[in-house]
Structures are given as structure tokens and as C-alpha cells.
Amino acid sequence: MLEIKYKNQRYYHHKDPRKPHHSHNGGGGSVGGKNSDTREIKIVRKVLDVNDTIAHQNRELFREKGVFVINVMSSPGSGKTAILVKTLSQITPKIRCAVIVGDICTSNDADRLAGFGAPVVQVNTDAFGGDCHLAAHVIKTAANNFNLDEIDLLIVENIGNLVCPAEFDMGENLRIVVLSVTEGEDKPLKYPLMFRVCHAALLNKIDLLPHLDYDSKAAVQNILKVNPQMPVFEISAKTQEGFDSWIEWLKQKLHGK
């Protein structure tokens, strides 16, 4: 759409302003009119298009190298690292894994994830201004640490946050959200974008249910309100209850790549 608007005038290049324009100039804008003080320059660009472009490049690279990438997200303390530790212990070395783990500070999570034969790279975003999410350029840099030809599955453990990571594509194949039963049942409704953009949900810490007044049915229903077709796996990283279904699903997705 090209719309040129002056202070006192407004008209459309197309009759229907919702239709896309027949040519775009990549953000340089188009200018009209010389006699008006103020002129409007159409841009029509996604604010995060730089991230999206790098994410696209990442996706192409991973596809070319045959690397399947999952992006695991949740609020802090839901058990992402514990889930990944148990997942790695079940799937390596048959599936050749690598892990990128994001935190604002410390390498504690990387230390926990080491020792399964999978190379682990810790990204600390305090160098990036304390970013609350991992963006595509960070993954691009971190992936340089691996020999991608020797990896089947790259697991990205995102920074604990249910808001920002949902907005940043990194070039992954699948997004997984973890919710734990020590959080509110209504979290999917409070953070709908996260639950909407993900492909599967893990409801963790179910071993604690006997000690809690937690309505896990309501939690699952709320997930399905936001994303009706999303598979939900009720699991415990501590006891590994429910892990068989989750691992089986992951393997199916991996082999269908």
C-alpha cells in the first residue's frame, strides 16, 4: 500500500488501501509532494524484520546441515533444565545432540547439562544488555561453536520468561513451552502469545500434585483454549513419569524432519 498523506490532504494510490502495493523499495520509503511542510513516507516494515531475516538464514543453514532445532521456553523455575537433563539422558548418544542454554548470568545450567556427550554452549545475555530472550543473531553466533554436520538435534534452552522469547524467531523447527504445577492454572490465558506460538506444552512437576491444591485439568483446558490442537504432556522431571510419551513425540518430529 502506498498512502501519501499531507497535513491537509489525504489520498490513496490504490482504490483499496488494504491491497498490497505493486512495488516496494525495501524500506527506503516513497516521497510525494514538494510544497507541503509535512509529508508522510510509507514504510510498512516489521519492526523485528532484522531478527526475522537472521532467523530465516539460521533455518536455511540448519535445514542444509540436517539439524533439527527445538526452542524450549518457560517462566523461571518451571524445570526446563531438569527436563532437558532427563531428556538428554534418554536420547543420547543415539541421537546426536547439542545444547545452547541462555541465561542473563552464570553458567550453572550449562554445568548441569554437561556430561551427556552433548556439547553445551552457555550464552549469557548480560553482554547483550541483560536481554530477556535469545534472539536469532545470538543463536547464529552460538551455533558456530558446533560442528553442525555431527548434530541431529539442537536444543535451545531459552531464558526463563513467558513474554519476550515468544516474539523472537530463532530459526527453530519447534517451540516447546514448559508450565509447572507450582504456577497458576491460568498462566496460558495470562501469557497467550507464548502458548499460541508453541507446538507442544509440557506440564511439569506432577509428582507434587498430591501436596498441592492444583487443578491440572483446568491448566490443560486453559492451554487448549489458547491453542486447541497443541499436544500437552504431563510429566515429572524428578520421577520421569510421562517421559515416554514426550520422548516418543520428540523422536517422531525429529525423524519427520
Binding site: E3, K5, G29, D37, T38, R39, E40, I41, K42, I43, V44, R45, K46, V47, L48, E167, L193, R196, L224, P228, Q229
Partner: peptide, 23 residues
């Protein structure tokens, strides 16, 4: 359960309005 989102995820810059201080 088969629904699609038509709008609501936008984060788009649509235009800028400028003046030339030299004019």
C-alpha cells in the same frame, strides 16, 4: 478448534511524517 488469527500479532512501522527544516 481449527481457527486462524487474522490480526493481533502486528508490530509494524507503517510510516513516518517528516519536515525539512531547511525548507
Amino acid at each position: 478448534t481449527s481457527v486462524e488469527m487474522l490480526s493481533g500479532r502486528e508490530l509494524d512501522i507503517t510510516s513516518i511524517e517528516i519536515v525539512d527544516k531547511d525548507n
